[in-house]
């Protein structure tokens, strides 16, 4: 498709060397984006200079399958909870004054948590929920727990799940707020004029309009959690329970020969998952923009 368009561009152009103007950019992205992508795509099928399916077969090793499954599970759960809570927050915030300080405060806070989180968030979590920290101590004082949080904060399906919510909920707010703000008050008034209740409005009017945006945001949250590395790397010190950590592991352990190319196969696996989700997202987003004029 791209080639056909480029051909079209050629035909419309006088041979004036206008293409020279875009050479630096395309050279740059070739070196730092296209070649790396090809390295992953090709490297996944090559080992010691020969074409092989060995790297792909290595994806069926129990450790890798477990990591993929746990990554998908963690991403699915955190994106579901994040989407529901974030959507509720977005709705609540959309009823506030449009230029009010409250809205600015919450969106700024969410921007920080969603974009800058990473390592800082992991440390914040440890300082708050770790052994002898404020939350376990408080809970102990009101009679819950022993005051020592134990090891649950380092578990991928407990501590990590909680800390992921600290960037999933904010991201949902940032992504979903425009959709909620796009709901026109006239739609609600029209429903009321025709005798509809609030419940009916949500079921028959607002719900269906927001649904594509909601699912789209959910998918975006999924890929966000699925490709996150920093928080997990800073929090989990033993083992590699998630796929990004497994890939990271192939960098540090050079013991096993050919491990680097298994890393490429795992990277390809991630790209495929993210790619599929992104395609569904693109289709949904086209539907979502039908009602919401941005």
């Amino acid at each position: 498709m791209a080639d056909a368009q480029r051909g079209g561009a050629h035909r419309r152009l006088r041979p004036s060397g206008a293409l020279l103007g875009v050479v630096p950019f395309f050279a740059y992205v070739t070196i730092f984006l296209l070649i790396p992508t090809l390295v992953v795509l090709i490297g996944a099928f090559v080992s010691d200079g020969a074409i092989t399916l060995g790297n792909i077969n290595a994806l069926w090793e129990p450790a890798v399958v477990t990591a993929l499954w746990q990554s998908v599970f963690l991403s699915a759960v955190t994106s579901l909870i994040g989407a529901v809570v974030g959507a509720l927050l977005a709705y609540a915030l959309s009823t506030a004054r449009p230029d009010g300080t409250l809205k600015k405060l919450v969106t700024s806070l969410c921007g920080v948590l969603a974009q800058f989180g990473g390592v800082a968030l992991a440390f914040a979590f440890l300082a708050t929920f770790g052994a002898g920290a404020i939350v376990p101590t408080l809970l102990h004082e009101i009679g819950i727990g022993s005051g020592n949080s134990g090891l649950w904060i380092y578990e991928w399906n407990q501590g990590l799940l909680l800390v992921y919510l600290y960037f999933q909920i904010p991201l949902m707010l940032i992504v979903f707020l425009p959709a909620v703000e796009g709901l026109k008050p006239q739609w609600r008034e029209a429903t009321e004029t025709l005798g509809g209740s609030t419940l009916l409005y949500w079921r028959k009017v607002a719900g269906p309009i927001l649904m594509p945006s909601f699912i789209g945001a959910l998918l975006l949250l999924f890929t966000n959690a699925f490709s996150a590395y920093a928080t997990a790397a800073a929090l989990v010190s033993q083992g590699s329970p998630l796929l990004p950590l497994q890939i990271g592991g192939t960098f540090t352990s050079e013991v096993v020969l050919g491990q680097a190319n298994v890393g490429k196969a795992m990277a390809l696996e991630m790209m495929v998952v993210v790619g599929v989700v992104m395609v569904i997202y693109a289709i949904l987003d086209r539907r979502a923009s039908k009602w919401l004029v941005r």
Binding site: P36, V39, V40, S227, G263, A267, M271, V274
Partner: peptide
Amino acid sequence: VPAIVLVVG
């Protein structure tokens, strides 16, 4: 292309 994949390439 997640950052972790980009690193590999």
